[in-house]
Design a protein around this nucleic acid. Sequence first.
DNA 1: TTGAAAGCGTTACCAT
DNA 2: ATGGTAACGCTTTCAA
Lengths: 342, 342
Amino acid sequence: MNLKELSQALELSQTTVSRALNGYPEVSAETRSRVEEMARKLGYAPNQQARRLATGRSMSIGHVIPRSLHEMMNPVFMEFIAGAGETYSRHGYDMIISVVEDHNVEAAYREIASKKKTDAVMVHGPRSSDERPALLKELGLPFLIHGRVPGLEHATSWIDVNNGRAFERATNLLLDLGHRRIALLNGLEDMDFAARRRAGFDKAHHDRGLQTIPELLRAADMTEPYGADSALEMLKSPEPPTAFMVSSMITAIGVARAIGLCGLKIGRDISVITHDDALSFLPNCGDVPIFTCTRSSVRDAGSRAAQLLIEKILPNPDTIVSEHLEAELIIGQSTGPLPTQA
Amino acid sequence: MNLKELSQALELSQTTVSRALNGYPEVSAETRSRVEEMARKLGYAPNQQARRLATGRSMSIGHVIPRSLHEMMNPVFMEFIAGAGETYSRHGYDMIISVVEDHNVEAAYREIASKKKTDAVMVHGPRSSDERPALLKELGLPFLIHGRVPGLEHATSWIDVNNGRAFERATNLLLDLGHRRIALLNGLEDMDFAARRRAGFDKAHHDRGLQTIPELLRAADMTEPYGADSALEMLKSPEPPTAFMVSSMITAIGVARAIGLCGLKIGRDISVITHDDALSFLPNCGDVPIFTCTRSSVRDAGSRAAQLLIEKILPNPDTIVSEHLEAELIIGQSTGPLPTQA
DNA sequence: TTGAAAGCGTTACCAT
DNA sequence: ATGGTAACGCTTTCAA
């Protein structure tokens, strides 16, 4: 069933039928309802490919995922996608995901642009130095960044958790509780989000005239063993930390495991604060969450990002929009005052 | 730069240029190389939408994700996607992901079919009773199932881990070690994979004339707290289990936490075997993995699934292909002989 | 308010 | 081996 057949069945021109279905104002109310009814009855749906060719819009948004990025960001990324995907659907957009090797990222974007595959792209996991914004501008491909690229805050559109402030507040909480030896298990610090968390951590210390402790600072892929091994090593050192700031729930679970292995109790002997992306399979809620955390739903971020891209950037590709999401600081069972020395 | 312009630059017809670029045999070698060079020089890339309209093929594969499914399967799903995505790219296919509410799944498939959005779809997370195969057949949409639908093993194409056999072997390992009170923390058993694991678990018992113990059998969303809370409750009961079979690494981490909270040592006091999907952010490898596990890379499954779909099913939609993936049984640190009663 | 017809950029059939 | 031309199914401009 295509437009031609539908219009023949209605004894109308394709033009009128098309207009009726696409909400053009000049078609009479009666004709429109007649058309709509017949379309429903005959199960007509416009062919996507034809419409795309005719309008020049693909009605889809691209997500290019460098393998290296998604390796560790998988769960976070997926949750973002889920949020974005729902919003796309509501607006009639498709989501096209390309998983590519790192050295093929540029080629993937060039292909999207030259073949007119998608109307815009979402950029994930910006690094402190990232070439994608420049490339996408050159290609004329509208885009929104989930995160920020330093120096391009005013030149690109983005949505980002206020990572610096979140970690500054969390660190201050620990400092207020009396902790002075605070470990930081961060993500890889060439990722912008990790760099900002580090900066927030540092700032909280410096503002009180305190120094961070180099032996207690780590940056790596945020796996569970990373948390466990790092914590184990630190806790067994001559001068162990009394608290941990951790960049991911998964790593925090590793830290908790290590604390248990040392025969210590989390929240009493050792405090832990983690960032919580509110992943559905790692719930950390309840009356008193297991982990004290800085929480920001990455799913909501995805949904909001999609909305900004579709409603603001697509209609006017030169618009610059940016949005900060504040993370909540939620007190759970994993923090407590510095234990008095035994 | 489109085909017309390119052919003008070459002083050839569009027909010939198109043929040269698409590898048709009847074009002379010299012409072909001339065309290819010019195309490269001028940066020509065929417009995707036009090609789709002309060929009637969308060159894309759809993944419809019911929200309820992805809620818990997120990380597993993402890893599958990553594997599939790479294979799609290599074959020039796009991956379209639709995240929809459960009650919109049927509508989503109907839309894909009627609007000719994708050439085929991948079906995720089949339930013991699943209406999707019937719907997709009705719609004439080629598909491959990741998993199986009972009763349709010979009527549909699928790729699946041999879940039953994996859990049977793992259970036998525990029984061989002397364990007789084995708990099962399964996924929701209306999911086919969970039902098969349960069956394997049961069979291992029954083959030795043993009974499973109802109080030690659970089925739920595979979160970390599910593992911790269930294990805690069971371990504190009058007749605690001596071993756990767990359906997911994440849940197993919860079990490990509970064991620690009880002051017990995993692998010595309590044995644990988990299924390990080989997720990149939950590595369980090394010389001696933390968890004894049944391991099967879901990423490889994705890659293989994509290959089957593109190479077997698309060229001939009536083909039925099915493939079993065997899970490895890997001995880690979390299993040991039944402790002698104190 | 409605319709005819010209694109949109390919591919594919039929000639030559 | 190459070219002319008709699809593909829709949107959109121009006329009426």
